[in-house]
C-alpha cells in the first residue's frame, strides 16, 4: 500500500462517516477520484498527470489516484475507462492517439472496442507540436534538401517510430504523402527506442515531440528541419513550420482529460472548473515547464472542436497508411 492509497483509504473512510447523515444531498466528489493512465509509468501521460493530480487534490478536496492500465499502445486503458461507471470517479488521461484505435480496428476488420463517442472531452492540457529531426551524420540542412534527396532514392532512407499507427508514425505518413516521397519504416517498441535508433544512425529521420528530443537537439546530435505546429515553437524558434515550407500539415502530441459517456453534466462542470484553477497554479506550470513544454489549456467547447479536427487528421493518416503487409 502506498502513501496515496493509504491517504485515499483513510480519507474515504472519514468522508463516509461524516457524510452518512446527509447522503441525499452529496456533492461530487465525495470519495477519491481515479485517473487512468493508459501508458507505462514515466510515460508522456504519467509525467503530466502526477503534477496535475497534486494540484487538483486541494481543489477537489479529495485524493486523486493515478492508476496505470498500460497495454496495446494505450488501448487497454482507454477501453477500461470507456466501460467504467460514468460517475466522475474514473477519468481517462489520454493523448492524440485515442482517436485512431477505432479506425485501425475497422481497417483490420476487427470488432471496434470503443469509438470517440464513448468519451466526453473535458480539458486539454498540453499540445506539443511534432518536429522532424535528422541524425547529425546526415548532410541535410533544410527540409527541401532532405525531400529532394528522398525523392531521388525512394525507399532507401529509413524513419523510426514508436510503433505502427502511433503518434510518431502518423505525422511521418502525412508528410510522405504531401511531399510525394517514400521511406522505409522502422517501427520500435516506444518513443525511447525510436530515439535510440536515430541516434545510432540505424534510422535517418524521426518525427518526434519537441520535448522528447530537445536534449539531443541541444547537444547537436539531432538536427531539426521542420516543425508541425501552426506557429513556430518557442523551444526551437529557428525551425520553420511545415506551413511556412508549403505543406499543409499540422500535428501535435496533445494530452487531455476524458470522462466516460453518460457522466452527468454537473460533474463535468465541476471538473472543468477544477481544471481551470489547476492549470493556473504556478506549481503545475513549473512542472510542465520542466518537461520542456508549456501548458496549452483548452476548456471543453474549444477542446471538443480541436479534438474533432485532430481526430480527422489521425483518421486520414491511418487510412493513408492502410493495412501494412509484412
Amino acid at each position: 500500500m502506498d502513501r496515496r492509497s493509504f491517504v485515499a483509504g483513510s480519507a474515504a473512510a472519514a468522508a463516509a462517516l461524516a457524510i452518512r447523515p446527509s447522503l441525499a444531498q452529496e456533492v461530487y466528489p465525495t470519495r477519491p477520484v481515479t485517473f487512468i493512465n493508459p501508458f507505462p509509468p514515466g510515460g508522456a501521460v504519467d509525467v503530466v498527470a502526477r503534477p496535475l493530480a497534486s494540484v487538483l487534490e486541494p481543489i477537489l478536496k479529495q485524493p486523486v489516484v493515478i492508476e496505470t492500465k498500460a497495454g496495446a499502445a494505450g488501448q487497454v486503458g482507454a477501453q477500461f475507462a470507456a466501460s467504467a461507471k460514468p460517475d466522475g470517479y474514473t477519468l481517462l488521461m489520454h493523448i492524440m492517439s485515442i482517436s485512431g484505435f477505432a479506425e485501425v480496428d475497422k481497417l483490420f476488420g476487427r470488432p471496434v472496442k470503443f469509438t470517440r463517442d464513448d468519451f466526453i472531452p473535458i480539458s486539454r492540457f498540453i499540445a506539443d507540436p511534432m518536429v522532424l529531426v535528422v541524425n547529425d551524420k546526415q548532410p541535410y540542412k533544410t527540409l527541401k534538401e532532405f525531400v529532394d534527396d528522398a525523392k531521388k532514392r525512394p525507399n532507401e532512407l529509413i524513419f523510426s517510430s514508436s510503433g505502427l499507427y502511433g503518434a510518431l508514425h502518423l505525422p511521418t505518413a502525412l508528410l510522405m504523402k504531401a511531399a510525394g516521397i517514400q521511406m522505409k519504416h522502422l517501427p520500435t517498441a516506444g518513443g525511447g527506442p525510436a530515439l535510440t535508433a536515430i541516434l545510432g544512425n540505424n534510422s535517418q529521420v524521426l518525427v518526434s515531440s519537441i520535448a522528447a528530443s530537445s536534449a539531443q537537439m541541444k547537444a547537436g546530435k539531432l538536427r531539426p528541419l521542420a516543425c508541425f505546429g501552426a506557429q513556430r515553437a518557442p523551444a526551437v524558434p529557428d525551425v520553420p513550420t511545415m506551413k511556412e515550407l508549403g505543406y499543409n500539415i499540422e500535428f501535435y502530441l496533445w494530452l487531455g482529460m476524458f470522462a466516460p459517456k453518460g457522466t452527468p453534466v454537473p460533474i463535468i462542470t465541476t471538473l472543468r472548473e477544477a481544471n481551470k484553477k489547476a492549470v493556473a497554479d504556478p506549481k503545475f506550470q513549473q512542472a510542465v515547464k520542466n518537461l520542456g513544454q508549456d501548458v496549452a489549456y483548452l476548456d471543453q467547447p474549444e477542446f471538443r472542436a480541436f479534438w474533432d479536427l485532430s481526430a480527422k487528421r489521425v483518421e486520414d493518416a491511418v487510412r493513408l497508411i492502410g493495412k501494412v503487409q509484412g
Partner: peptide, 25 residues
C-alpha cells in the same frame, strides 16, 4: 539520455519532472 528499459525510463522521467533533462549534456 536514452533509456535502456522501462525502469531507466521512469528514472529519466523523474529527472525531467525535477527540471534536469537527461541527455548528452
Amino acid at each position: 539520455g536514452i533509456p535502456t528499459g522501462p525502469v531507466t525510463a521512469v528514472l529519466m522521467a523523474a529527472l525531467l519532472i525535477h527540471g534536469v533533462p537527461p541527455g548528452p549534456t
